[in-house]
């Protein structure tokens, strides 16, 4: 079993769910950058965005267990099956475009999961029209302070990097036991059947080593993603998480102390039975948000509403100014270098 070491500093991500538009740019940027299209990686999406409420990726991952129990004891859960992870599709391009069969064949999947994908329940949500509700939840490895995967690994292949707290896997040491996957309450670990190892988000460590932000953050067109050291008081991340406390981890009850935080979603006023606006009502049930972000979510939403009200009255709001992000590079903390400047020898 692995041992969790304490890192000197901790990098953290913040996603503002009031800015995330579910475009999957983070997912695609990650998939294109890292070897997630090599043999054995077809189903891998280290970064994903899902519509919530929804079954997500892997399908029903929130019911698969893992993490720590109330006594701090490691809990092993389920390892998602390939069908639950979904996707991994190839298509019959040659048959359709060059096969000479005309409209008898159409472009369709020739491999992979039958009825699930990384974003299968996109834009579905819950509720009843016109009071349907949904929002987008981007997810990657949480680079937890107390990573269950590290503790679960029989080969001690997973570790927290000392200088920034990234949870990394020594893939030369990993033997593919998948206990990490069973222990991870977020199910963000994938198995590479071609190589016989597991893989997960590497926190873009080669970029971070060059002072360049991870691809998911740097490519986010919604300007919903932030990164930085939690102890760097100047970073937007520290301000949002530590100073104003408007960003919360997902499923804090997992006990792993995630380092990916979320500004929880506001939502439009619901409509009463007669169609008039119910200004004081909640479109997204608060209990649902509490089930994701813990009981602290109510105070955060209250505080966000108060800040919005301040702005509408012409007053200043440092919290909202941070989220507005007048200067995009302020989202990147110390990782604000333009990668194209780098010249490799």
């Amino acid at each position: 079993m692995g041992t969790i070491t304490e890192s000197k500093r901790q990098l953290a991500w913040v996603f503002d769910l009031n800015k995330c538009i579910g475009c999957q740019t983070c997912s695609v940027a990650c998939k294109v950058l890292w070897p997630q299209q090599d043999p054995g990686t077809e189903q891998m999406w280290w970064m994903t965005v899902n519509t919530k409420p929804g079954r997500g990726t892997p399908r029903d991952w929130e019911a698969m267990g893992g993490g720590y129990d109330a006594h701090g004891k490691l809990v092993l859960g389920k390892v998602p099956t390939p069908e639950e992870i979904g996707g991994g599709w190839d298509f019959n391009y040659d048959e359709v475009l060059r096969g000479g069969r005309g409209s008898d064949v159409h472009l369709h999947k020739t491999s992979g999961a039958k009825s699930w994908g990384m974003n299968w329940d996109e834009d579905e949500g819950a509720g009843e029209f016109p009071n349907a509700y949904y929002f987008y939840l981007p997810r990657l490895c949480n680079h937890c302070t107390r990573p269950a995967c590290v503790e679960a690994c029989p080969k001690d292949a997973i570790f927290k990097r000392e200088e920034d707290g990234l949870v990394l896997r020594d893939e030369d040491r990993c033997e593919g036991a998948q206990r990490c996957s069973s222990a991870c309450p977020y199910k963000k670990i994938y198995f590479n059947s071609a190589r016989g190892v597991s893989q997960h988000c590497i926190g873009c460590f080669p970029r971070i080593e060059q002072r360049v932000a991870p691809a998911c953050v740097r490519q986010c067109p919604g300007r919903a993603a932030f990164i930085g050291f939690l102890d760097d008081e100047d970073s937007a991340v520290a301000k949002l998480v530590k100073k104003w406390k408007v960003a919360l981890p997902l499923h804090p009850e997992s006990g792993t102390e995630p380092n990916v935080y979320y500004v929880p979603p506001l939502s439009p006023a619901p409509l009463r039975e007669d169609g008039s606006f119910d200004e004081s009502g909640d479109r997204i049930p608060p209990s649902y948000l509490e089930s994701l972000f813990g009981p602290g979510v109510h105070a955060v939403l209250k505080s966000l509403r108060a800040e919005l009200d301040k702005k509408r009255r012409g007053l200043d709001s440092e919290v909202l100014d941070t989220l507005i992000l007048y200067r995009w590079k302020d989202a990147l903390g110390h990782l604000d270098r333009d990668p194209a400047e780098i010249v490799w020898n």
Binding site: Q24, T25, V28, A29, V32, P221, Y326, R327, W328, K329
Partner: peptide, 19 residues
């Protein structure tokens, strides 16, 4: 920044551009 007090346009892209 074009106009002071107005957010800049960065980073400008999308998932199609990214692939």
């Amino acid at each position: 920044t074009i106009e002071p007090g107005v957010p800049d346009m960065n980073p400008a892209g999308c998932q199609k551009g990214a692939s």
